[in-house]
């Protein structure tokens, strides 16, 4: 892998609640290289958003970062005072949310908001700022960007609003953009458009993306690398294509196997039994053990991170051997066009 622009090491974020201390992010490590897209996947409650907020310095009480490092080009963001972090946020690292209205103000024109966002970090004239705003809208494929600057958010579709949010994130050409389920609420044709733009932007601008999603198909078609989370921990990492073709962690394998599109219609889907555990009472050892078909005597103790070829890792006592792993292509069928 090329040199990492973002390196997260053993990040721990916890919430003090009446039910006790919830370890929402419990020793998360991953890295992203320049121009690469990392898919951060996991089911709801696995700690993806809290990981994102922790990286951006947006954790508020009762939450706190209890340990670890977030190295952006070598600088540890967790050690910065909030004023210093504010200078970096939006400039060197930016965030895109599932709901673009988290970023956009409904009563201000797009142009007004983007000019303010430019001038928050750069002392330039309004005119120059407006030019940069327009260029950013064009970069994310918004038609007639000059006119869009004079629109209000509600005059745009959900897909267009999300593009505007991505354009705002791009304004300062950040090293990293962290996007939290940015296409989850969008229709597939609009999602397809945005994924195509993001892939192009990563390749052309060198901005690295951490793309948070619960959707394995999105990761599979967009990301270079993948990082799978379960109950606050990273359970598997590696190149996306390799992990998807041959998962080493039983949870990743279970998730992949339960996607209906990969099975003969009408057949029973392989299912992961049970449901995600509450952080308030995790089982000792491997949090996945109560649902895991491979669980064995060692699994009542915390499993080690196992390292495999091509930098792959899995947090598991009995990782799946690549030979015993059924390649997905044997069961997959492709949707085909008639012509």
């Amino acid at each position: 892998m090329s040199e990492a622009v973002l390196r997260v090491k053993d990040l721990r974020t916890q919430f003090k609640t009446r039910a006790g201390v919830l370890k929402a992010v419990d020793g998360v490590s991953f890295e992203v290289g320049r121009g690469r897209i990392l898919g951060l996947v996991g089911e709801s409650g696995s700690g993806k958003s809290v990981t994102g907020y922790s990286i951006l310095g947006l954790i508020e009480p009762p939450g706190e970062i209890a340990g670890g490092e977030v190295l952006l080009n070598g600088q540890d963001l967790t050690r910065l005072k909030s004023e210093a972090m504010r200078k970096i946020r939006g400039a060197q690292i930016a965030m895109v949310f599932q709901d673009p209205m988290m970023t956009l103000n409904p009563v201000l024109k797009i142009g007004t908001q983007m000019i303010a966002a430019v001038r928050a970090h750069d002392r330039v004239s309004r005119k120059v700022a407006r030019g940069r705003a327009r260029d950013a809208l064009a970069k994310v494929g918004i038609p007639s960007p000059e006119e869009r600057l004079d629109s209000y958010p509600h005059q745009l579709s959900g897909g267009m609003r999300q593009r505007v949010a991505i354009a705002i994130a791009l304004l300062h050409n950040p090293a990293v953009i962290l996007a939290d389920e940015p296409t989850t609420a969008l229709d597939v044709s609009i999602q397809g458009q945005i994924l195509a733009e993001v892939r192009r932007l990563a390749d052309e601008t060198g901005t690295a993306f951490v793309w948070v999603t619960h959707d394995l198909a999105v990761v599979s078609s967009l990301a270079d690398d993948i990082c799978v989370m379960y109950a606050g921990r990273v359970v598997e990492t590696g190149p996306a294509a390799d992990v998807i073709a041959s998962p080493r962690h039983p949870y990743t394998a279970g998730l992949l196997a339960s996607v209906p599109a990969e099975h003969e219609p009408g057949t029973r889907l392989p299912q992961v039994p049970g449901s995600t555990p509450s952080l308030a009472n995790l089982p000792p050892g491997c949090a996945f053990a109560p649902r895991c078909a491979k669980a064995g005597p060692a699994c009542t103790t915390t499993p080690p991170v196992q390292h495999f070829e091509d930098g792959r890792t899995a947090l598991c006592n009995y990782p799946i051997e690549p030979v015993s792993c059924q390649p997905l292509s044997s069961t997959s069928t492709t949707y085909r066009s008639a012509s």
């Binding site: 044709s189 609009i190 999105v218 492709t334 066009s337």
Partner: peptide, 25 residues
Amino acid sequence: TRALFESVPRVGVGRKDFRPIAGEI
């Protein structure tokens, strides 16, 4: 229908060369 099927990301087919449907709904 054809354009919709083309837009759908799939698991296990690798990095996709997106050819999304143009325009908005």
